[in-house]
């Protein structure tokens, strides 16, 4: 993709975003929706200023980001090897894939009292909940990616006399990389959603806690501002992941 095309896509995205914001502003000003329920976009700059004054801007942003990163990294450290095992041992793969797929739907976050008891009200709880939510898509996507490697590519490696580890590292994993990265992207989003949720519920940590506090203080614009920050966290991460992928596997 050329830089110019990328730039145009970003510009088109921003135009759409501005249009939605304008529509929202109109709907609220026209009195169709109460500003007490949805903050008008025009109130966001002030809301951000409020967050900044109270020290709720930079620190919670970094805290949430660090937790989401730690949770995804932990999930990848467990999930990629697990997906690899489920691929290497087809019986295990067929046995556990349906269970993992089903467990994916479990509302993990509702078990938060359990995690509070085990890990206490701290970062251990938020990161573990995030990682647990994140590791399943990584396992499933890693297995699917490895299963999808064209046999001919493996035969090319064998015809060149590659050792088993080199075959894995030089051919099989790069060939499976797009699927694995899809798993990582999903994982990051699941980790982030669950971390925000748990922060909100236990009133601890980063942006989820800010959302909770602004909500209880009835600072509606500031609450929306915090939600915008959460979206920015995921944007930052997804673009970092994109960079990592193109660096490791250009096409």
């Amino acid at each position: 993709m050329t830089a110019e095309r990328h730039g145009r896509a970003v510009a088109a995205g921003l135009v759409g975003l501005a249009a939605v914001a304008a529509l929202l502003e109109f709907v609220i000003r026209a009195g169709l929706v109460s500003p007490l329920i949805v903050a008008p976009p025009s109130s966001l700059p002030q809301a951000f200023a409020l967050l900044a004054r109270e020290g709720y801007l930079v620190a919670p942003f970094l805290i949430t980001m660090a937790q989401a990163f730690a949770a995804t990294a932990l999930a990848a450290a467990v999930g990629v090897p697990l997906g690899f095992i489920l691929w290497r041992r087809p019986l295990l793969g067929r046995a556990y894939e349906p269970w993992l797929g089903a467990a994916f739907a479990a509302p993990l976050i509702l078990l938060y009292p359990l995690f509070l008891v085990i890990f206490g009200r701290g970062y251990a709880t938020t990161v573990v909940v995030g990682a647990l939510a994140a590791f399943i898509p990584i396992v499933l996507q890693t297995r699917a990616g490895l299963l999808g490697v064209p046999p001919v590519l493996i035969n090319v490696g064998r015809s060149f006399h590659l050792s088993e580890p080199r075959l894995l590292w030089k051919i099989i994993f790069p060939a499976a990389a797009p699927a694995i990265f899809t798993g990582l992207r999903l994982a990051l989003i699941y980790a982030l959603v669950n971390i925000i949720g748990i922060e909100f519920l236990i009133d601890f940590g980063g942006l989820g806690r800010v959302v909770s506090q602004m909500y209880f203080q009835y600072q509606i614009p500031a609450m929306y501002a915090a939600i915008v920050l959460i979206v920015i966290v995921s944007l930052v991460f997804l673009s970092l992941l994109q960079r990592l992928e193109t660096w490791w596997r250009p096409r």
């Binding site: 064209p150 001919v152 590519l153 090319v156 051919i171 790069p174 060939a175 990389a177 596997r249 096409r251």
Partner: peptide
């Protein structure tokens, strides 16, 4: 040399 597409796309 194989029949199928065998270049490494990455």
């Amino acid at each position: 040399v194989f029949q199928e597409e065998s270049t490494f796309p990455w």
